[in-house]
Amino acid sequence: MFDVELLSILLPALAAGLLVLSTHVLLGQQVLKRGIIFIDLAIAQVAALGAIVSHIDHRLEDLPYAHVWMPALFALGGAGIIAWMAKRLVGELEAFIGCFYVLSAVAAMLLLANDPHGAELLKQLMSGQILWVSWSQLALPAVVSAGILGIIIAKPQILDGAGFYFLFALVITLSVELVGVYLVFSTLILPALALNQYHGKPKLALAYGVGIVGYIAGLLLSASYDLPSGAAIVATLALSAFLFRMLLKLRLPVLAG
């Protein structure tokens, strides 16, 4: 049985996971629909690059909320570049997005090459520290996530246009700070992939189920065996996605695609 202290750590971490899932499940299905799988890694990496720039420039680091608006500026800039490429490089878009990701990752490594805390910061941005999220850190992501979900509900066609890229950038910016680049990618792709061949009415609800099961199992695994939380959740998300996909194939043999 978990003690009260451990529960006080797990509850905000779970709330952070649910916040990330609230927008990522919807956007992840759009990513698969567009066939731009690497966009989440690319935008997440660009947002991380913005966080690194604010860290190494002490003039920026001392400005209020620089850890939020600097990654957001970089992510929005990256989204703008990808939106531009989407119109002009249709047949090669995925390849160019992959190159964009690699260049952003290399730039991050070069910027932190001589920073004594660079390796730790890079690890934090990639793997995240979801177990150490506090309730106060969730206020801004909750407001932004609610706003973005409201926009999507009121105007669902925005996901089919260029506005998708900018909503995506805002969501990714906040998520990277909460859970890290690897978990951002996994949360976007794995629930969507689990239900990709299923077209029944509860598709969206089932995709959320994949994510919720994965996050709860990962947090419990991490807390029980003192494992890195981000890595544990990625593993359980993958297992959850695989199990859901297999169960749907067994119970619902007539699948589209």
Results as ranks from 00 to 15, higher is better:
residue 63 L to Q: 09
residue 78 G to C: 09
residue 41 L to R: 05
residue 89 L to Q: 14
residue 58 H to K: 12
residue 87 K to A: 15
residue 79 A to I: 10
residue 29 Q to I: 01
residue 51 A to L: 04
residue 91 G to H: 12
residue 82 I to D: 00
residue 62 D to Q: 12
residue 59 R to S: 15
residue 83 A to P: 11
residue 105 A to N: 07
residue 93 L to Y: 10
residue 105 A to Y: 09
residue 98 G to W: 03
residue 105 A to K: 05
residue 83 A to F: 13
residue 94 E to N: 11
residue 54 S to L: 02
residue 110 L to M: 14
residue 108 A to K: 02
residue 76 L to K: 04
residue 65 Y to E: 14
residue 48 A to H: 03
residue 30 Q to M: 13
residue 82 I to Q: 04
residue 77 G to S: 12
residue 81 I to T: 11
residue 55 H to E: 09
residue 73 L to P: 06
residue 104 S to L: 09
residue 38 F to P: 01
residue 62 D to W: 05
residue 81 I to W: 07
residue 66 A to T: 01
residue 45 Q to C: 14
residue 64 P to F: 07
residue 54 S to C: 07
residue 65 Y to D: 13
residue 33 K to N: 07
residue 67 H to P: 00
residue 92 E to V: 13
residue 84 W to L: 15
residue 95 A to S: 14
residue 43 I to F: 04
residue 59 R to Q: 13
residue 101 Y to T: 09
residue 91 G to E: 13
residue 55 H to G: 00
residue 74 F to L: 14
residue 92 E to K: 14
residue 71 P to M: 08
residue 101 Y to E: 09
residue 71 P to K: 05
residue 78 G to W: 00
residue 94 E to D: 12
residue 51 A to G: 03
residue 79 A to K: 04
residue 41 L to E: 07
residue 47 A to K: 02
residue 92 E to A: 15
residue 81 I to D: 04
residue 109 M to V: 10
residue 57 D to E: 11
residue 33 K to C: 06
residue 74 F to A: 14
residue 39 I to H: 00
residue 35 G to S: 12
residue 95 A to R: 12
residue 42 A to N: 08
residue 106 V to A: 10
residue 60 L to S: 06
residue 45 Q to G: 13
residue 47 A to L: 06
residue 54 S to R: 01
residue 107 A to P: 00
residue 58 H to G: 09
residue 58 H to S: 12
residue 46 V to K: 03
residue 70 M to S: 01
residue 36 I to D: 02
residue 94 E to M: 09
residue 38 F to K: 04
residue 100 F to T: 03
residue 32 L to Y: 03
residue 83 A to Q: 14
residue 56 I to H: 05
residue 75 A to T: 05
residue 110 L to I: 12
residue 108 A to V: 02
residue 55 H to Y: 15
residue 64 P to D: 06
residue 106 V to I: 12
residue 93 L to Q: 10
residue 108 A to N: 03
residue 83 A to H: 12
residue 111 L to D: 01
residue 77 G to T: 11
residue 91 G to A: 14
residue 110 L to S: 10
residue 33 K to D: 07
residue 82 I to G: 01
residue 63 L to K: 06
residue 53 V to E: 03
residue 106 V to R: 02
residue 33 K to T: 07
residue 32 L to C: 07
residue 68 V to A: 06
residue 82 I to P: 03
residue 31 V to F: 07
residue 31 V to T: 06
residue 76 L to A: 11
residue 93 L to M: 11
residue 86 A to V: 11
residue 43 I to S: 00
residue 110 L to E: 09
residue 89 L to N: 13
residue 103 L to W: 06
residue 88 R to G: 15
residue 76 L to R: 05
residue 88 R to Q: 14
residue 78 G to I: 02
residue 59 R to M: 10
residue 104 S to R: 06
residue 37 I to L: 15
residue 97 I to H: 03
residue 54 S to P: 00
residue 41 L to T: 06
residue 62 D to I: 08
residue 90 V to E: 15
residue 81 I to V: 15
residue 84 W to T: 13
residue 54 S to K: 01
